[in-house]
């Protein structure tokens, strides 16, 4: 086991030099446990942005914190087709015959799935319960800020984008950073992604900066190369070029096993099903990030 760990570290170092990459070495024993925190907007975003990295760092001895920022009120679907024997024990979210599950039930389902996924990593799950900007009533979409949304009053805090302008809500994230003092924090890309993703990133960014000023021993804030960084212009002028590349080849089984716990999102068909239509060239074996803040220098 130790040898495996050692080999993994060597491989990592090798790869790092290749990419002009930087990362920490394996955890030396005796010191307090180092920590990595991954903030995903929705229930399966942690896996999506940094599942392999989380698994790898936990294997290196880091404490892993798996944060679901949003209380998912939308995103589960039911099949209209009737039960048939021999069918898998789940529904197929992306079926053309789908229709949405009610908000309360969706939040329960997706939180349960996230708990199981966090367990796969051996990470501590934390749910911040910021509100989803919409949910379904019957089969109709209800947006945050409408009278129906207000009347339904789903569980949760403020909308994530609004949380970014409320000091008390930024503090919710600050408290976590103060508690765990993570060496590495990973979240979504700032801007240029889905509403909830970009705003989650901004919330974490604000909190990181606030806690940084308190001289807390935080490390680095990494964000994946997504959204506008994937644009031709950003690629061309080098802005979309990551400075961190983590070889997660060895940890892909863990990443996918965690992914597969989100049954409501992938119909149990696993990552091929989830990811097949999502992106073009996607290098699963290396997870890449941009260092947005680094206070270890």
């Amino acid at each position: 086991m130790k040898q495996k760990k050692f080999l993994a570290t060597i491989m990592l170092v090798f790869l790092l030099s290749f990419f002009s990459i930087e990362t920490v070495s394996a955890q030396p024993t005796g010191k307090p446990q180092k920590c990595i925190m991954v903030f995903g907007a929705h229930a399966d975003d942690v896996e999506s942005i940094a599942g392999g990295t989380l698994a790898k760092y936990i294997a290196m001895g880091y404490k892993g914190i798996y944060v679901g920022t949003i209380n998912n009120l939308a995103g589960c679907s039911l099949e209209k087709t009737p039960y048939f024997n021999g069918a898998p024990l789940f529904t197929i979210s992306n079926s053309p015959r789908k229709y949405p599950v009610d908000a309360l039930e969706t939040s329960q389902i997706r939180q349960e799935e996230a708990l199981q996924a966090a367990e796969v990593f051996g990470a501590t799950p934390i749910f911040l319960d910021f509100r989803e900007p919409w949910f379904s009533m019957g089969r109709k979409q209800i947006d945050y800020g409408t009278i129906q949304y207000q009347q339904f009053s789903p569980p949760g805090r403020k909308l994530i984008s609004i949380a970014t302008i409320v000091s008390a809500d930024v503090d919710v994230v600050c408290e976590l950073l103060r508690k765990y003092q993570p060496e590495i924090v990973i979240t979504h890309t700032l801007g240029g992604e889905k509403l909830d993703h970009g705003n989650t990133a901004y919330l974490v960014y604000l909190a990181f900066k606030r806690v940084m000023k308190e001289k807390m021993p935080l490390g680095k804030l990494w964000m994946p190369v997504r959204g506008w960084f994937s644009e031709t212009a950003a690629q061309k002028n080098g802005r979309g070029k990551p400075d961190i590349g983590i070889d997660v080849k060895e940890y892909l089984p863990i990443k996918y096993a965690a992914y597969d716990k989100h049954i409501s999102q992938n119909g149990g068909f696993g990552r091929d099903y989830v990811l097949s239509n999502k992106r073009g060239p996607y290098n699963d074996q290396v997870e890449e990030f941009i260092t947005v803040i680094d206070i270890t220098r």
Binding site: Y83, A87, L89, I109, I263
Partner: peptide, 10 residues
């Protein structure tokens, strides 16, 4: 259990 009750997910 999910199996015995005959449910799929919910």
């Amino acid at each position: 259990s999910a199996e015995s009750i005959g449910i799929k997910l919910y």
